[in-house]
Design a protein around this nucleic acid. Structure first.
Lengths: 351, 351
DNA sequence: GGCGCAAACGTAAACGTTTTCATGGAAGCT
DNA sequence: AGCTTCCATGAAAACGTTTACGTTTGCGCC
C-alpha cells in the first residue's frame, strides 16, 4: 500500500539513460533518437510511471489547473456554470479546482489565498470581491476573470450577464401584450444581477409605459419571498395586471400565491421570471422567463482566462456582456402549446 | 505583473531568522519563542507571504486536495453531490479537484492518471470503473472511494444508494394503495442504479402482488423515453393501474403522455418516480417519488475518504449503503395538499 | 587524417518547502 | 561549580521534476 511511487530516476536507471532523456522523451521536447524514445516509453509504461505533478509544478511554475471560486450556490446555475467551465477546461487540458460554498468576504479571501501555487489562474464569482480585495489577496502574477461583477478593472477581465437588457426586453414584451401595470418583485439589494434587473424594469417602464406607476415589492430570490410578494400584490387596492419577478423561483412562489387566491394566470395577471430554470417549463401554466446561457458563460469565462494564461496574449482587460433571450410561455399570455414538448434528450444523470 | 512571488527566504531574511523557524511558526509546529513568532508573523503579513503549495506538496507528499471523478452529469444530482462533497471537504481543510464530463473508459482512465501528485485521494463515480481498472490506473498509494458502484473490493470502500430498497418500498406502497398492476419504466441497462431499481420492482411484485403480471417497458432515464413509455403503456390491452418509473424525469415524461391522452393521474393510473428532483413537486399533480439525499452521499463519501487519508485509520474497506425514503405526493393517490408548500428558504443562487 | 559541427545525451543546478540533525546556551540538579 | 537536560535555533538534505550547460559521438569535408 505504502510502496514508493516510481520516479523518473527509476525509469532512467531501468532504461539505462539519464533522467534528462526520460524527461525529454515524455515531454516531446525532441533531441532524442527514435530508438531511445522507444525504450524509454516502453520502460515507463512497464513501470506505470506517471510524473509527479507537484515536482513538475514547482520547477515550471505551471499547474495546468484553474481555480473557480464561487459563492454558496444551489441548483442549476451552479451545475451549469461548472459544466461549461469544465468542458472548456478539459478541451484545453486544464484541470478545475472548485471552491464553492463560502459566504462572507473572509471566506472568499481565504479561498483565494489557499489557491496560491495550486492554480495558474482563477475564475471568481462573488459579491464580496472588488478591486481592492484582489490587490490584497491575489498574487501579482495570477490572472483572474471576474464573473457577474460590477467592478471595472484595467487588470481583470469581467464577464457579465446582460440582466438589464433581459429584464428590459421582458417588461417591454409584457407591456406590448397590453399590460401596462407591471409590478416588479425585486431581488436582494446587494446582488449585482438583482440591481441590473431592477434597472431594466425601470428603464422599460419609463420608455414604454411612462404613465403607469412603478410598483416594486421586495424579495430575496427565494420562492417563499415570491409567495409573500404575490400576496402583497393581491392586497393592493389597484392590482397590477402583470408581474415580473427578478428570478424564476420568486415567480413560482408568486404563481402559487395567485393560484391559492384563485387568480387566473395569465387571464387576470400575467407573470414572468428570470433565469429559465428547469422547473419554469413544468409549472402550470408554464412560466415565461428570460433565458441565460449559463454554460456558455462558464465556457467564455474560461476561454478568456486561458487567453490570459498565454504569455503572448495582449488582449486588454475589458468588461464583456453576455446577452440573454426572453422565452415566452403561457404565464404572460403568450400562445405556447398546453403541454411542454418533451425536452430534447440529453444524456441523463446516472441516477 | 510578473514580479517574483515572495518566498519563505524573503520572510526569513527580513525577520532575521532562518527559514526553518519561519516554517515552524507558520505551521504551528512549536518550538519557537513567542517573541520570534510575533516577528515572523508580522513580517509574513507585511510581505503578503503565502506558501507555495507545489513545493509544500513535493516535500510532504500531501496536497490537501481530493479529486472527484464524475461522468458527464447534468442537473441536480451533479450539483448536489458536489455541494455535499465540497462542504465536507471544506470542513476538513481539503480542496476539491473535479473532473467531470467524460464518458468512456479511456477518458476516465486519463482523468484518474492525470491526478497523480495532485490529490491525496479520489472519489470515483463511473460506470466504467472496476477493480482491474483501479489496479492499472491508480498509484498504489492513492486511497479511493467508489460511489454507486457494483464492485466489491477489499481495497476500496464503496458507497451506494439503496436503490433496490427504495424501489421496493415505493412499489409496495403503490400496491398497498390498492394498485396491484404496477408497470415499471426501466432505466439504461448498463446503469447500476437502474438495475437495482429493477430488482426492487421485481422483489416487491413477487412479494406483495404475486398474482399480478410483471410489466416492464424500456427507458433511458430521459424525459422523452418516459413519454414514449407512457404512450406504450396506454396502448396495452390491459392498462396498468400504477406506473413506477426508474427516475423522475421519465415519470414526468410519462405524466405528460397521460395528460395528453386525458388519463387522470392518480384517478386512472397512479404514478411514481425516483430521485425527488426539484421539479417533482412542481408538476401538476405533484409527483410521488423516492428521495435520495445526494448531498449526504457526497458528504459521507468524503468523510470515508478522509478517514482513509489518516494513516492511523484501520477501518477495513466495505460496501456501505445509503437508505432513501419514499415521499408521497399526489400522483400515487396520496393525500398531500393541493399546492406544494413553499420550500423552506434556502440561500438563493446568485442570479 | 585532422578538423569542425551538430546531434544525442548526461550532469547538475534550481524550484520552495519541510524536516532531521547539530549546536549553543540557559536552566535545573546534585 | 560541574553536570545533565532541554529548548530555541540554524544548516543542510531531501522531495521529483525541468532545463541550462557541458560532454561525447558520429560524420562530412577539406
Amino acid at each position: 500500500m505504502a510502496t514508493k511511487n516510481t520516479t523518473i530516476r527509476d525509469v532512467a536507471r531501468e532504461a539505462k539513460v539519464s533522467v534528462a532523456s526520460v524527461s525529454r522523451v515524455l515531454n516531446g521536447t525532441g533531441g532524442v533518437t527514435p530508438e531511445t524514445q522507444r525504450i524509454v516509453r516502453e520502460v515507463a509504461a512497464r513501470l506505470h510511471y506517471v510524473p509527479d505533478n507537484a515536482a513538475r509544478s514547482l520547477i515550471t511554475g505551471r499547474t495546468h489547473t484553474i481555480g473557480a471560486v464561487l459563492p454558496d450556490l444551489y441548483g442549476e446555475f451552479f451545475s451549469e456554470l461548472i459544466r461549461g467551465i469544465d468542458l472548456a477546461a478539459r478541451a484545453r487540458g486544464l484541470h478545475l479546482l472548485v471552491s464553492s460554498s463560502h459566504d462572507g468576504v473572509d471566506a472568499a479571501a481565504a479561498a483565494v489565498r489557499a489557491m496560491r501555487g495550486r492554480v495558474d489562474g482563477m475564475l471568481i464569482l462573488s459579491e464580496h470581491v472588488d478591486e481592492k480585495f484582489l490587490e490584497e489577496n491575489l498574487p501579482a502574477s495570477l490572472p483572474a476573470v471576474l464573473l457577474d461583477s460590477p467592478v471595472k478593472s484595467t487588470r481583470f477581465p469581467v464577464l457579465n450577464i446582460d440582466s438589464r437588457a433581459g429584464a428590459l426586453a421582458m417588461v417591454q414584451h409584457l407591456i406590448e401584450k397590453g399590460r401596462q401595470n407591471v409590478a416588479f418583485i425585486a431581488g436582494p439589494k446587494s446582488n449585482f444581477d438583482a440591481q441590473q434587473r431592477d434597472k431594466g424594469y425601470r428603464a422599460a417602464m419609463a420608455k414604454h409605459a411612462p404613465d403607469a406607476p412603478l410598483n416594486i415589492v421586495a424579495g430575496d430570490f427565494s420562492e417563499e419571498s415570491g409567495y409573500r410578494a404575490g400576496r402583497e400584490l393581491l392586497a393592493q387596492k389597484k392590482r397590477p395586471n402583470a408581474v415580473f419577478a427578478a428570478n424564476d423561483m420568486m415567480a413560482v412562489g408568486c404563481l402559487y400565491a395567485f393560484k391559492e387566491a384563485g387568480v387566473d394566470v395569465p387571464g387576470d395577471i400575467a407573470l414572468a421570471g428570470f433565469d429559465d430554470i428547469l422547473i419554469a417549463r413544468y409549472v402550470t401554466p408554464p412560466l415565461s422567463t428570460v433565458q441565460v446561457r449559463i454554460a456558455d458563460l462558464g465556457r467564455i469565462a474560461l476561454e478568456r482566462l486561458a487567453a490570459l494564461l498565454d504569455p503572448t496574449d495582449t488582449t486588454p482587460a475589458s468588461v464583456q456582456t453576455l446577452g440573454c433571450d426572453i422565452v415566452v410561455r403561457e404565464t404572460c399570455g403568450g400562445n405556447a402549446s398546453a403541454a411542454p414538448a418533451p425536452r430534447k434528450p440529453k444524456r441523463p444523470p446516472s441516477t
